[in-house]
Amino acid sequence: MPGSIFYLDKSEIREGKLQELKAAITHLVAFLDSNVPRVVSYGIYLDEGGTQMTVVQIHPDSASLEHHMKVGAPEFAKFKDLVKLKTIEVYGEPSRELLGLLTKKARMLGGDAVAVNGLEAGFERFRLAP
């Protein structure tokens, strides 16, 4: 049975765009909090120098991250002048549809690949009801 999906992406913040990016992040998080109810955890992290942004998400399953990608796509497009995506990494068993959505996001934000890492061994102690 497929388990949780862990998502991590890293982007380079475009020069002179840090303050604009911070405002966009605040809007994005509020939007997603209201429209993506099944996400377990969602965080956007900036490095101390204000040059790198990392997004970390935990979803109960592939369908949750698919929903996130579909609902959030118009909002993610607003970031293409603010960041240049470097990597998207997915941990778990994403569906083909999800991989297509992630690849589309990567290309839109200047990246070109999505790395998938399958679970070899482990366990989970948190689960949300479907």
Score class of each variant (00 low, 15 high):
58 I>Y: 05
127 R>P: 03
95 S>L: 09
48 E>S: 10
45 Y>F: 14
79 F>H: 05
7 Y>L: 06
121 A>R: 06
96 R>Y: 07
103 T>I: 08
17 K>N: 09
91 Y>A: 14
130 P>T: 09
71 V>N: 14
114 V>H: 03
31 F>N: 14
108 M>N: 01
108 M>H: 02
50 G>Y: 13
70 K>W: 04
76 F>D: 01
61 D>W: 12
21 L>M: 15
52 Q>P: 04
104 K>T: 14
96 R>T: 12
91 Y>S: 12
34 S>C: 05
98 L>G: 01
20 E>A: 13
38 R>P: 00
116 V>C: 07
75 E>N: 11
112 D>E: 12
121 A>K: 13
113 A>N: 14
68 H>W: 11
42 Y>M: 03
45 Y>V: 14
16 G>P: 00
110 G>R: 03
45 Y>C: 10
21 L>V: 12
44 I>R: 14
68 H>S: 11
17 K>E: 11
52 Q>A: 10
35 N>Y: 11
101 L>N: 03
39 V>Y: 07
56 V>Y: 14
3 G>A: 05
4 S>R: 09
78 K>V: 07
72 G>L: 00
116 V>K: 10
18 L>V: 08
58 I>C: 06
26 T>I: 06
91 Y>G: 06
5 I>W: 13
88 I>A: 00
25 I>S: 02
7 Y>R: 02
34 S>N: 12
9 D>F: 00
40 V>P: 01
116 V>F: 06
128 L>K: 13
68 H>E: 08
1 M>E: 03
106 A>R: 01
121 A>C: 03
46 L>W: 04
58 I>K: 13
123 F>M: 09
38 R>H: 14
75 E>F: 09
126 F>H: 15
94 P>G: 10
105 K>C: 02
76 F>P: 02
77 A>Y: 08
